[in-house]
Simulated scan of single mutants.
Amino acid sequence: MKLQYGIFKQLNNPKETYQLEGKTVEIHSMNDTKFLSRFAGKGQFAVWTSDSKSYKLLIEDGYYQVMKDLYSKRVNQVWITFYEKADKVRFGLMYKMVFPMIAVSMVLAILFSTLEALRDYQNFALIGILGVVLVTNMLQTTIMRKKVEEARTTAVKDIQMIIGENKFNDLLEKQGKYYEDYFKFEEKVEPAVEVSEEPKAEEENPKSK
């Protein structure tokens, strides 16, 4: 499974490196890359990348220090397992639904365009095929989201068991506070301009003399 592969290729200076079930995992500082504003600026402080064999975690320094327990070796194994499950779900649906549907659609399109007896119905057939493609795509997307969300829920429960419920809840509070503090900007108060309320002295009229 390739995950954010373009970013993966650009990460070459890991802060930590270790093995998890035969896979190399590297921890990279987001602060040392050009991706800091791209991700942290939008509230995404941790980004997983992969070339399908190894994994690289790009994470903002301050966030990593606060949430380090959420990215321990055991927890990272859960994250990796989740991403691999999600990838299997996606490819499984592609092979079971999308590819067969495309193959059948192509066969029908060829039949209606080449057989004399079916040519008069070619336009209707193409409209029908398009409708089936759209419905199948929508159904595949719905099923994929549901299965991926189920895998995510299982991963969160596994992480909660590893960390412990109380510590897990404490981390969630720290996470919320980190988000709040990270995006807290001090308002610059401009000094007030004093406006004199004293009336200007009237100019002396030379004709009055």
Rank of each mutant, 00 (worst) to 15 (best):
D32Y: 03
K85E: 15
Y55W: 09
V89S: 02
A40Q: 04
T153R: 14
L70Q: 00
E204L: 15
S50F: 05
S50P: 06
L130R: 03
A46N: 07
F168V: 09
F91W: 12
W48I: 09
A109H: 03
V104A: 11
G41D: 10
V156M: 13
F35T: 04
Y121L: 09
V193L: 12
K56V: 03
E60R: 07
V193M: 09
L108T: 06
T49M: 04
K207C: 07
Y18C: 06
T136H: 01
E190Y: 13
T49K: 02
H28D: 01
Y182A: 05
A201Y: 09
K34H: 10
Q10M: 11
F45H: 05
Y182P: 00
E150C: 02
D51Y: 01
L108M: 13
V132A: 13
F45L: 06
N123H: 11
E202N: 10
P206G: 01
V25R: 00
E204N: 10
T114I: 14
V189E: 10
M144I: 06
E187T: 12
A40P: 09
L3V: 08
N169P: 02
L139G: 06
N166M: 05
F91K: 11
L58W: 02
A192T: 10
Q19D: 14
E197G: 07
A201C: 03
L118H: 01
Y121E: 01
N166P: 00
A155I: 04
T24W: 02
M161T: 15
A151F: 12
K15T: 04
K68C: 00
V75I: 14
K9C: 08
I27G: 00
M30I: 14
E198M: 14
K42Q: 10
N31F: 04
K209A: 13
D120G: 15
T17H: 06
S54Q: 10
Y71H: 09
R119Q: 15
A155V: 02
V148F: 01
G131E: 08
M1S: 15
Q140P: 02
F124K: 15
V66S: 00
V89K: 05
V78L: 05
A155W: 03
Y179F: 13
L118P: 04
E116N: 14
T17M: 03
G43R: 05
